[in-house]
Computed example of a mutant assay.
Amino acid sequence: MDMTTVGEPGLLDTLQHEVAVFARRAEQTRLGGVGQVRNSMDRAAYLLLNRLDKEGPMGVKALAASMGIDSSTVTRQVAPLVDTGLVKRTSHPEDGRAVVLQLSPRGMSRLEEVRSSRRQLMSELTHDWAPQEREAFTALLTRFNTALSDRMSTPGMPTGDSQPAS
Rank of each mutant, 00 (worst) to 15 (best):
G156S: 10
G107V: 06
T142I: 06
G96E: 09
T5K: 11
S66H: 01
A136H: 09
S162T: 04
R118K: 04
Q132E: 14
V100C: 04
N39K: 13
G35Y: 00
A139F: 10
V21G: 00
S104L: 06
L101A: 03
R51N: 05
V99G: 11
A65I: 09
H127I: 06
D150P: 02
H92D: 15
A20W: 04
E133A: 13
V34Y: 01
D53E: 09
M58D: 05
A65M: 11
T14F: 12
W129G: 02
A23D: 07
R118M: 07
A23E: 05
F22N: 02
A130W: 06
Q36A: 15
N145H: 13
Q28M: 10
Q163G: 02
L15N: 00
V74E: 00
E112M: 15
E18P: 00
Y46A: 02
L140F: 10
L81Q: 03
G35E: 08
R43V: 10
T138W: 08
T14H: 08
G7N: 11
R119L: 13
A20V: 04
R106H: 09
G56Y: 02
T146H: 07
E8C: 06
L140A: 06
E94N: 12
P164D: 09
R119F: 12
D128K: 06
M41H: 04
D128Y: 10
A139M: 07
S162I: 01
V37N: 07
S123L: 15
A79K: 13
